Simulated scan of single mutants.
Amino acid sequence: MNRQPIAVALRALRHTVLGRDVPPGRRLLARWPGLDRYATPVGLLAVLGLFLITLTVESEWGLSTPIALLFAAMTVAPLLALPRRPLLAWRLTVLALSICTFNAPADQAWPWTPPLALGSIAVLAVVVARVDRPVLVWVVAISTVPVLGLVDPDNRVPVLLLLGALAIVGDLIRRNRLSRHALAAQTEQSEREQERRAVLEERTRIAREMHDVVAHHMSLIAVQAETAPYRLTDVPAP
């Protein structure tokens, strides 16, 4: 029995649950410094708005103020961690989806508040585009647990289809990004090789020219030395 796939799957599971986070991706507005400077304050204002909306919804659902504050904080915490710690943001999202659901009214179609549901989709969309394929499989598999356990059966299929679509698109985005990085690295290496080859060719040309010049001068010296007795009148006889 080949145990290598099992070992790879277990390592991926350990990385998914407890492993180091993936490096943050490039900021979307990095190409426009004029707009990038406003990204952080605008993002914080958006998170504050989601916090207040969640707090209002939780209060309307009859939660006490401390519990409503706790659930609102758990809703926005993944969004705060998402820019620099995507995998941690996903772990916080799974925790929020598992905890912030038992307070929904009986007539509520979804067990989560709209900010939590939309924020979870945003976090998952970023994470699946950053992690490698074995971790991606575990991320999607673990994300389906709250869906299967808490979402109404009539709404499970669309959510599962959405998770599958996010996984496929995220994997394609990651592979495309890796291909572009590999192509850029190969292009850079080719340019370095061309520069090194140009330097070597220039050195060879200079060495060849110096050899020709030195050989020419040595030939002149030899000719002048051989013809010296015939050109000089005061040379003593042998």
Rank of each mutant, 00 (worst) to 15 (best):
Val140His: 07
Phe51Tyr: 15
Met218Val: 15
Trp61Phe: 03
Leu160His: 03
Gly34Arg: 08
Thr144Arg: 03
Leu220Arg: 07
Leu160Val: 12
Leu48Trp: 04
Val127Met: 14
Met218Arg: 14
Thr40Trp: 13
Asp212Tyr: 06
His15Trp: 11
Ala12Gly: 04
Phe71Trp: 01
Pro115Asp: 00
Ala215Met: 14
Pro33Met: 13
Val169Lys: 00
Leu178Trp: 10
Thr144Asp: 08
Ile99Cys: 03
Leu162Asn: 06
Leu82Asp: 10
Met1Leu: 05
Val213Pro: 00
Glu209Tyr: 03
Gly119Ile: 03
His211Val: 07
Pro146Phe: 14
Val42Phe: 10
Ala182Gly: 10
Thr54Asn: 12
Met1Lys: 01
Cys100Trp: 01
Arg3Met: 12
Val94Phe: 09
Val42Leu: 13
Tyr230Leu: 14
Val223Asp: 15
Leu80Cys: 07
Ala165Gly: 10
Leu45Lys: 06
Thr187Asp: 05
Ser98Pro: 02
Trp32Glu: 11
Leu88Met: 09
Pro238Cys: 10
Leu35Ile: 08
Ser64Cys: 01
Arg85His: 15
Asp36Ile: 08
Ile206Phe: 06
Glu195Val: 11
Ala109Tyr: 00
Asn103Pro: 00
Leu148Asn: 02
Pro134Cys: 12
Leu150Asp: 02
Glu209Lys: 05
Ala106Gln: 09
Pro33Ala: 10
Val57Pro: 01
Gly62Thr: 06
Leu79Ser: 12
Ile221Phe: 08
Leu162Phe: 07
Trp138Pro: 04
Gly119Trp: 02
Leu63Phe: 02
Leu88Gln: 14
Leu69Tyr: 00
Gly62Asn: 08
Leu232Thr: 15
Arg231Asp: 14
Arg11Leu: 09
Ile67Ala: 13
Ala77Arg: 02
Gly49Lys: 09
Met218Ala: 11
Ile121His: 03
Thr54Cys: 07
Pro83Thr: 07
Glu60Val: 04
Glu60Arg: 01
Glu226Ala: 15
Ile173Phe: 01
Thr144Ser: 05
Leu172Asn: 13
Leu70Ala: 13
Arg175Leu: 15
Leu232Tyr: 13
Ala185Leu: 13
Ala117Leu: 14
Val131Met: 01
Arg180Glu: 12
Leu95Ala: 11
Pro134Ile: 09
Gln194Thr: 12
Ser143Lys: 07
Leu55Asp: 11
Ser120His: 06
Pro146Ile: 06
Ile53Val: 14
Ala125Ile: 01
Val94Cys: 07
Phe71Ser: 03
Leu150Met: 07
Ala77Cys: 04
Asn176Asp: 15
Arg26Cys: 04
Trp138Tyr: 11
Arg175Asn: 12
Leu160Cys: 13
